[in-house]
Nucleic acid binder design. Structure first.
Lengths: 233, 233
DNA sequence: AGTTTCAGTGAACATCTGTACACTCGACAG
DNA sequence: CTGTCGAGTGTACAGATGTTCACTGAAACT
């Protein structure tokens, strides 16, 4: 254990009183309600701890401590940390689905579609930084169930986007295979933008605009070729 | 510790005799030579252990055990695991530089440039799977010095590519900013292809071809728009 | 020749880890 | 009202971890 970690460990008692609004779930409610509330506390505790570290370096004891329960009580909710991780994927990818739903029901036409998409992406990322951080971090981390679950979810996401793209006039005639390629390209680019956004130090709106400008430029560069594409060469 | 890890720990003694060709560096040579040899053994041991896990879940003791030295001897070479990690980045990104150098000195013209680029990428990835796995995995993992070092290296890589792109007739007039955006796009796409390649189960050449086909299609889709781009709108 | 340097050793430590076990005590069903 | 169920507790243990310290012995220097 290195120095930084030891210090934070020593401060744990103090932290429990200050930082954790997600403390113990003891309180009113039926038994089911209270159980689900501490389950949620566990998920949120994990997400908080993942702010600057990877899931693999997360210990069961840390999570339970932050959630305000004793280590052994963990097993009442999950059989392993991996299971907690998969549950976390389910929860965070709901944010992704919200994103694409927002983008779909967007007032299209009287604003540049690229501008609008990038903007709603920005809003969602800023509103749920921890969720996006988790997904982009753990996407490639290891071979565990978490990375696999994220992979599945992102493929679904890309497929949904492909379906949406099919609605545009310029793309009506494209074979689905080409549509998927285009959707993958867009998703990959958007995820790169997400990472860039999460790297901006908080409050630096100038840097925000720089990143968003680059995101718009990337998308334009991809989409500029669409009218000239010869389907399935 | 979960079940799989415990099993592998119990098998360590057996593994030391079988799997590790990179054992202790004791042998002939000057003192400097031998020191650098065990340093290299440490780096290779780490790289081997990173085959299916993240760097953060790597312990100093594991690495030294695999390298065939006692834990405390680690400090003769690195002051911390992070330092080992950064050294690993330096070593693995040399492979990246080799890649772009190969792509540069490629017989261009009498073969489709996209085909050729994708092919040399393929060759390099298959020849150094562990290096590419390390870079793509740790790129987004955490806030540590490793991720930062990889970020720097990838930006350099992208800049080099931008310079190379500037040599093409269709791009001679592009402002450097647009060139960088295009280069970023290409690098991002290529890295996505690398990840796909590393996901293919070994020996499945049919899947290999599928991935390469998709890679070519992605690149074509990006580059098809180049002639129609209006620099810096 | 004698002396210094230093990569690698081995024992010891304090701390953290996952998990087993027996327990409490309030919500709930009969 | 009484008995069961089950979320959360507390203690305990074996193993792994990073790091300390005093050491060995061969290479390198004088």
């Amino acid at each position: 254990m290195d120095h930084a970690e030891r210090v934070s460990t020593l401060l744990d008692v103090a932290e429990e009183e200050t930082a954790s609004a997600a403390k113990t779930a003891t309180g009113t409610g039926s038994r089911q309600e209270r159980k689900q509330r501490t389950r949620q506390a566990l998920l949120e505790a994990a997400l908080e701890l993942l702010a600057d570290r990877g899931f693999a370096s997360l210990s069961l004891r840390e999570v339970t401590k932050r959630a305000g329960i004793v280590p052994t009580a963990f097993y009442r909710h999950f059989t392993s940390m991996d299971e907690l991780g998969v549950a976390l994927v389910e929860q965070t990818t709901r944010t992704l689905r919200d994103l694409i739903r927002s983008a779909r029901t967007e007032p299209v036409g009287h604003l540049d579609m690229i501008d609008a998409s990038v903007h709603t992406l920005y809003e969602h990322v800023r509103a749920h930084e921890d969720h996006f951080r988790f997904v982009t971090r753990e996407r490639y981390a290891g071979t565990g169930p978490i990375a696999r679950a994220i992979g599945v979810e992102l493929r679904l996401f890309s497929s949904d986007l492909a379906i949406d793209l099919a609605r545009f006039d310029a793309l009506r005639q494209w074979p689905t295979d080409d549509l998927h390629t285009l959707a993958d390209l867009v998703v990959t680019t958007m995820l790169a933008t997400v990472v860039d956004l999460l790297d901006v130090r908080p409050g630096d709106h100038q840097a925000d605009e720089l990143v968003l400008g680059q995101a718009r430029k990337r998308l334009r560069m991809i989409l500029i070729g669409v009218p000239h594409w010869r389907p399935t060469a």
